[in-house]
Amino acid sequence: MTVLAALGPLGIGVIVAAVVGGLFAFRKTRADAHKATAEGEKAEADAAEKLTQIALSLVEPTNRELAAVRRDLDAHKQSDADAREARKVAAVEHMAWDIQAAEQIRALGGDIDNPPPLYEGDHL
């Protein structure tokens, strides 16, 4: 007796139904897996977008603060350069006065060395 004869028409129907059901179940499982993968990728993209928004919200205040620090630094550099120039002018004037005072002391009969320099180079 063959397997088909032993199963009969009802048994063959059950086997066909099982095979067809298995195929549909496999396709549904595969579709569910693709859907889950797509949902996971969307969740990752949403998370990346949120992190990007957070990063950008932190960058703007940092850029403003950095710009303020740069303005302050530029102002300090300018103030320092102005003060350095004023000290140089004052030092030249003072040196001229020192030399004049030394010459007057000598003219009055006093003995005095030449005045020492007020600064050397840019170290004022």
Rank of each mutant, 00 (worst) to 15 (best):
D113W: 08
Q100L: 12
V19I: 13
A83W: 15
R84N: 06
A48P: 04
D111P: 04
E60S: 07
L108M: 09
L23K: 02
P116C: 03
A33R: 07
H123F: 09
L51G: 09
K42L: 12
Q104Y: 08
A75L: 13
R84G: 00
D72R: 12
G13W: 02
K77P: 00
H94D: 10
G109S: 07
E60N: 05
T29H: 07
V89H: 12
A96H: 13
G11V: 01
G40M: 05
A18Q: 05
E41G: 14
L10F: 03
A101R: 11
I112R: 15
A33M: 01
L124P: 08
A33G: 03
P9A: 07
A83F: 15
D72P: 03
A33T: 04
S79H: 13
F24V: 14
R64M: 10
E65V: 03
H34R: 13
A75W: 06
V69Q: 09
L73P: 03
I112F: 10
L58W: 00
V59D: 03
E49N: 14
A107M: 07
G40P: 15
E44F: 15
G11W: 02
R30P: 01
F26I: 07
G110A: 08
L23G: 11
F26Q: 09
R27H: 08
D80T: 11
R30N: 07
R84P: 01
L118R: 10
L56I: 08
A83K: 12
E39G: 04
A55Y: 04
